[in-house]
């Protein structure tokens, strides 16, 4: 039974678009996004919920896509890093990350930015402490976090982020 679990058709709403995809029940949301929808901005780091690089937004709140089965994401609005920039260009968080040099290898960046997006939606002008707490579950092995925190705080300010 277990090796032949039938695939199921699910409807995933990602970045405002609805997609019908055929998945086996054991496919994670991360795998569905990367392999079925070719949204490879979402990264797999540890694969066990520890590092935060696979973070996507589900109904506006950050979740670990490696810990979420694709079938469990049905009925929720998913936002990936590809869905952040608008027609007028980069989202102000993306712009702020670029300006502050908050990116080195870039692997943690999609998860960092989406986690920060959820923070700004809740607290529009976060302080340093709030920014640090928000990204406490996202690991970056390059930057030492300082520039990431600066970028998030600046993106929350109203002047030139």
């Amino acid at each position: 039974m277990s090796n032949k679990a039938p695939k199921v058709v699910i409807e995933l709403k990602v970045n405002g678009e609805e997609h019908d995809i055929l998945v086996p029940p054991h496919l994670t949301l991360l795998e569905a996004l990367r392999e079925k929808l070719e949204l490879t901005g979402t990264k797999e780091g540890c694969g066990e919920g520890v590092c935060g690089s696979c973070t996507v937004l589900m109904d506006g709140r950050p979740v670990r896509s490696c810990l979420t089965l694709a079938v469990e994401a049905v009925g929720h609005e998913i936002t990936t890093i590809e869905g952040l920039a608008g027609p007028e260009g980069l989202h102000r968080l993306q712009d702020s990350f670029v300006r502050h040099g908050a990116i080195q290898c870039g692997f943690c960046t999609p998860g960092m930015i989406l986690t920060a997006k959820a923070l700004l939606d809740e607290i529009p002008r976060p302080g340093e402490q709030e920014a640090r707490e928000a990204i406490a579950a996202n690991i970056c092995r390059c930057t030492g976090y300082t520039k990431i925190v600066e970028a998030i705080v600046a993106a929350g300010g109203d002047d030139d982020a």
């Binding site: 039974m1 277990s2 032949k4 679990a5 029940p25 054991h26 994670t28 079938v71």
Partner: peptide, 11 residues
């Protein structure tokens, strides 16, 4: 590493 295959029900 993939998850092992299983059937899935959401009653």
């Amino acid at each position: 590493m993939r998850l092992p295959a299983f059937d899935y029900l959401a009653p």
